[in-house]
């Protein structure tokens, strides 16, 4: 029987070795693009000279950029709140179904999340199409006025948020459902014996027990929602009047479509410090709660 070399007989060495593929992936697909974007953001438009933070100071003087900042925050906040509420309600509803019948409901509810968003958004685009909207066709059949889903600034924002909620709510649902299933049933039984009603059980047992999951899910969703690209790209291309641009679509417009890659990189990096601070606060709270529970 062959004997492993001494180095491989040491557990830490094996652990490091087995992590190498993961480190390589992170280095290649996360670290390198991030630092390359940082590098690009410090170059002039022709990418021939180092300009430090000039691209950022230039951005701060642009009206459209600040509109994009406000829109991105509005989009992320509204979408995440609705995704969280719908996900929580749906998780509760499914959790009340007997275990045997839950699987098909879980499967059906996950469909919007598992379809590639670019594809499902195309379906939504047909529903919202500016001239031949299928929804408007239905509305007018019932003598109701057609809605300018994509051509009016309010409705265009409403539409992209609606589609984002439709795509993202199942993620909250599945996370919350897993969390709900991890709560010991004895806690509810004890509460019932003490005379607690449904709302009391929800506020004093369910919510505290899934608080960490809520925090982590919300953090993850804010990051993904702020970085959303495909929904806006397919539905509105940032219009009308640039009122549906998010960081990613605006960075794409400025960087790729207009050929100003350094400025585009600066736009996309702008959200990084905000998300880093948010992630730090949320994860610190999660750690503290976990420590206190332990």
């Amino acid at each position: 029987m062959r004997v492993l070399p001494p180095l491989l007989r040491r557990k830490p060495a094996v652990a490091v070795l087995m992590c190498v593929p993961l480190f390589a992936l992170i280095l290649g697909l996360v670290a390198y693009p991030f630092f390359h974007a940082l590098f690009l953001a410090t170059l002039n438009k022709a990418e021939t000279a180092f300009v430090g933070l000039d691209n950022f100071t230039f951005l701060f003087g642009r009206q459209t950029f600040w509109m994009v900042v406000r829109q991105s925050l509005l989009f992320a906040l509204v979408a995440v709140v609705f995704k969280a509420l719908i996900g929580l309600a749906a998780a509760h509803a499914i959790n009340t179904i007997p275990t045997k019948g839950q699987r098909k409901w879980r499967g059906m509810m996950l469909i919007p999340w598992v379809i590639p968003p670019a594809l499902s958004t195309l379906g939504w685009w047909w529903l919202f199409e500016p001239t031949y909207s299928a929804i408007n066709w239905g509305l007018t059949k019932f003598a109701m006025p057609a809605v300018p889903w994509l051509s009016d600034t309010f409705w265009a924002r409403f539409s992209i948020i609606l589609v984002n909620v439709w795509v993202g709510a199942p993620f909250f649902l599945i996370m919350y459902l897993a969390a709900l299933k991890s709560i010991p049933g004895e806690l509810y039984e004890a509460a019932e014996m003490d005379g607690a009603g449904p709302w009391q059980k929800f506020f004093f047992i369910t919510l505290p027990m899934i608080r960490n999951i809520i925090a982590i899910t919300t953090l993850f969703s804010i990051i993904v929602t702020l970085a959303n690209f495909d929904i806006v790209r397919v539905l509105t291309q940032g219009g009308p009047l640039n009122t549906t641009h998010l960081f990613a679509t605006y960075a794409f417009r400025v960087g790729i479509e207009s050929g100003d890659i350094p400025l585009g990189a600066s736009v996309s990096l702008f959200m990084f410090p905000m998300l880093a601070i948010l992630a730090f606060i949320i994860l610190r709270n999660v750690r503290r709660r976990a420590a206190s529970l332990a």
Partner: peptide
């Protein structure tokens, strides 16, 4: 003009005239 022109893509005008509208 129809209000939808603010959301037209490059194929919308084609579809619109072809439809007869």
């Amino acid at each position: 003009m129809p209000d939808s022109v603010y959301a037209w893509d490059d194929a919308s005008n084609n579809r619109w005239i072809i439809s007869g509208a």
